[in-house]
Amino acid sequence: MDQERLDTILSRYEGDAADLIPVLQDIQDQYSYLPKDELKVVAQKLNVPLTRIFSVATFYKMFSLIPKGRHQIRVCLGTTCHLRGGPRLMESFSHRLGVEPGYTTKDMQFSLETVGCLGSCAQAPVAMIDDKYFGRLATDKVPKILKLYKN
């Protein structure tokens, strides 16, 4: 375990139980997942039971207990996107990357997942890669977009 790296994150907070989610978000951002040993330290430092951390970490979709890829692909399957070809878009990403939603490619480059709604229904169907939105996405644009992120 990289104690220093974790301490840097923890040093930004007061160490209250209320800091739990922001701390977990920082760990998720930096490590691309929530490592078990780190969570045990967080439990001690913030004085929250490990059960609570496990509960929070498994509840929110933004957290993962297994390592995620370098880029997060989120394909929207909210009502509007669903109607406007979201499932086909999902299939296309899944097919090109060779992974099912919820999984990460072998080279740890991409994690693929579905989301409920990205809040841009006017742009349906929408996908998000890391912090960037891709609206009115047709399946024929998928290879091009993936290329931007490969290497």
Binding site: T51, S55, T58, F59
Partner: peptide, 10 residues
């Protein structure tokens, strides 16, 4: 008072 179990997942 030990909180050994909790709800997990959704």
């Amino acid at each position: 008072g030990v909180s050994a179990i909790s709800m997990a997942h959704r």
